[in-house]
Design a protein around this nucleic acid. Structure first.
Lengths: 212, 212
DNA sequence: TTGTAAAGTTAGAGACTCTAACATATGTTA
DNA sequence: TAACATATGTTAGAGTCTCTAACTTTACAA
């Protein structure tokens, strides 16, 4: 609510536009979309509301985006980039080939889900479109490759082997599942209170450990 | 498509109704909802279309359901029951306290997701409503308790302890994540081809094994 | 037999996505 | 510098959807 008001304010600045042309509409629509997706969730996001926030008519977005879905995709892609940057940053403080790096990857994944559940759903939920979807997949694959590399390093190997792929896959499934369980509130009523850091360490040890 | 035609046929039987009253509408609407949710996905399910399938006016469902969401909830609850039954069945062929039982639980979870992704999303996705949502949560908690019990038995204990809860939680996160990665097509373009049974065994050993 | 409640129907309000046709600014080119 | 082309707005409206109100038909009980 506050954030929306803020958006409205920011918009007003440009809205004094006797301009007719907005000047910066595409950017502002993407930002409004991001905010609304967080506020209402991807399912209840409406283009109309984004227009209201940005102070333009409901037809305006279609000069910049093919359809609603394309607006959401842009937000998703931006989210992927943010998440990736956070991973690189958080991983970099630990030496290569150590568990803390693996743990850091998982922590960022889950933290992102909790901080921006709406965008996270956009990034990792079912994607309608198979067009822009390509970009998203590629970014995902990039991240996945990075995880595999980390796992290989933990083995003391530079090259990624089958077992690394397998283990990275286990790790991914786990943090992915945990993220959704958390943001979908499936753990809310369980008396499960756990320390995320502990769990991540536990999982990393179990998965990276022997027995492949 | 075929299934829809089938529904239409079935409906016709009752539709010769010079009855005015349908006789069996609620049941048929739920079934139509289930089928459509599978066909189009929960997001693209529309009450209107269910009405077309059932051969009634678009206002008819509101005599039986509070709103669209309630229709979906009923399908979700029925899904939970089916999944639970399958678990009980598949687990029962193995002796208590053995890994194959754990594996069976995971297998059913994932198989259900793959066979009925639409209903699965309804069951385990974000639920809007906090009313009927109660039933769904309770059923979920019931299943989770069952998993904890299985884990405890693997330790040779009847009573569920903290470590069992923790391990069950790891198992759940994993199969949950894997299910969504699969049905959301996130693994499609990876050259990851894995044997599910193998992976489940691997995970079960790693999680049930020592180091807690 | 008759009255009431359950379960249909039609009509329509209000919201949404997206398109078509039109309007206005911007900026390039003769 | 005029004028055209293009980009980016607007208004209007078609077609879809959810859900409600008011009416109708049927079933069942008194």
């Amino acid at each position: 609510m506050h954030e929306r008001d803020w958006i409205m304010e920011e918009t007003k600045k440009h809205t004094k536009r006797s301009n007719y042309h907005h000047g910066d509409l595409k950017t502002q629509l993407i930002e409004a979309t991001r905010v609304l997706v967080e506020q209402k969730g991807p399912d209840h996001f409406s283009v109309s509301e984004a227009c209201r926030v940005a102070g333009v008519s409901t037809a305006a977005p279609y000069k910049h985006f093919k359809d609603k879905n394309e607006m959401l995709q842009e937000v998703a892609v931006a989210g992927m980039q943010r998440q990736r940057e956070q991973m690189l940053e958080e991983v970099s403080v630990h030496p290569r080939g150590t568990l803390p790096r693996i743990v850091a990857l998982g922590r960022v994944y889950i933290r992102f889900a909790q901080k921006e559940p709406g965008v996270f759903r956009l990034m990792f939920g079912l994607s309608e479109d198979h067009d822009e979807h390509a970009t998203l997949s590629e970014m995902g694959e990039g991240t996945y490759t990075a995880v595999q590399q980390e796992v290989a390093w933990c083995r003391g190997s530079e090259a990624i082997e089958e077992q690394d792929t397998q283990r990275a896959f286990l790790l991914w499934s786990f943090v992915h599942g945990l993220s959704f369980l958390l943001i979908d509130g499936k753990l809310a009523h369980m008396n499960l209170d756990f320390d995320l850091e502990e769990v991540l360490n536990d999982v990393a040890e179990r998965v990276i450990g022997p027995k492949a």
